[in-house]
Nucleic acid binder design. Structure first.
Lengths: 183, 183
DNA sequence: GCTAGTCTGTAGCGAGTGCTACAGAATCTC
DNA sequence: GAGATTCTGTAGCACTCGCTACAGACTAGC
């Protein structure tokens, strides 16, 4: 690995941490550079432009989410919808996952109009959906994808509630939905 | 009503429309002024600062959501949780509500750190929750608020899915959750 | 040592940001 | 009509934005 690639790698790790701490609000080139301990000039030496910088950092964050998912339910295992939903809710409410989901909501909001967020959001959510579909224990049918999206919607909604009303309200909502599903 | 108040009123209406069209991405003073057909100088004559301008416009948007809710289920009527959820899902998927929920997701994302969004998001979501609680037909208990938040989470999650994957995916998810609740 | 190519700091451009000072226009009061 | 008050356009300040031109510092091969 060349010096340049090593530096790139280090910078991306620091930036992913920065995103988890501060979200998307501190993402000018100068702020990112400061968080990565380099000059903005160097950021644009390692990457072609700002969009590439952000994409690399966000992909790193998404990778940490993918890692957590892989641990949660191993490949090959399948679960009924309400069990899978419960597992994912619990993951979302984990303290160490909170910054990840907060950033995720910000990315979706930005995805409405601005690149590179649109592409990133579509990629990340597709990966998330495929993960669910592969672990969904239910009769084959056209509503397999739809069920996955429903689970995904609830999990993302929990993250949204957590931002507005705090972790306690979100945990309450997560419990309430389990009751709704079991009656 | 003084000339100034009349102008303010007209400006707020135009700005609410602008927000529904373009979201929160075109919200510099000059862009807002252009959308309202006045100069940025005048915007700061009608309002003390930019935050006040945005707050007024967003409150107008929130009022239109409140209006739609009032029509959906009249005050005094109560419904079981899964019926209320179905009604709200259908509202969220309505073509004329789409821009409202898109803006709502953007506000929540911005609420993480920036005023006036933090305050606005808390106010709006509290109103939404109270509306649900008042129409929730279920045994009294500590989980009444929690159930309302669970319904709210799913509705907001649907909006998020709609942004990422489009209306069809969101509608599929809305149908899927009804199936989950009925088995 | 010399040259070629890779790296990195300085300084700055043009555009956009929220906001304000100032002055002139319009309206109202007497 | 004079004077006070309310309105509104022009111009600009101090700042941040993404990005770049330029020049000097480094290393590699000869």
């Amino acid at each position: 690995m060349s010096v340049r690639e090593e530096q790139r790698e280090k910078v991306v790790n620091l930036l992913a941490g920065h995103l988890l701490e501060t979200g998307l609000s501190q993402t000018s080139l100068r702020q990112l550079a400061s968080a990565a301990g380099v000059s903005d000039r160097m950021l644009l030496y390692y990457f072609p432009d700002k969009a590439a910088v952000l994409s690399a950092a966000i992909e790193r964050v998404a990778a940490s989410l993918a890692g957590a998912l892989a641990e949660l339910v191993p490949e090959g295992t399948t679960l009924p919808p309400h069990t899978l939903l419960a597992q994912l809710s619990r993951l979302t409410m984990r303290e160490d996952m909170r910054p990840v989901f907060r950033v995720w909501v910000e990315i979706v909001a930005a995805a409405r109009q601005e690149e590179p967020y649109t592409t990133l959001a579509a990629t990340i959510i597709a990966g998330f959906r495929d993960w669910i579909v592969a672990r969904l224990d239910m009769a084959d049918g056209a509503d397999r994808d739809a069920t996955a999206m429903a689970i995904l919607a609830f999990v993302d909604g929990l993250a949204l509630v957590e931002i507005c009303c705090g972790m306690d309200a979100a945990k309450g909502a997560a419990n309430a939905v389990e009751n709704l599903l079991n009656h």
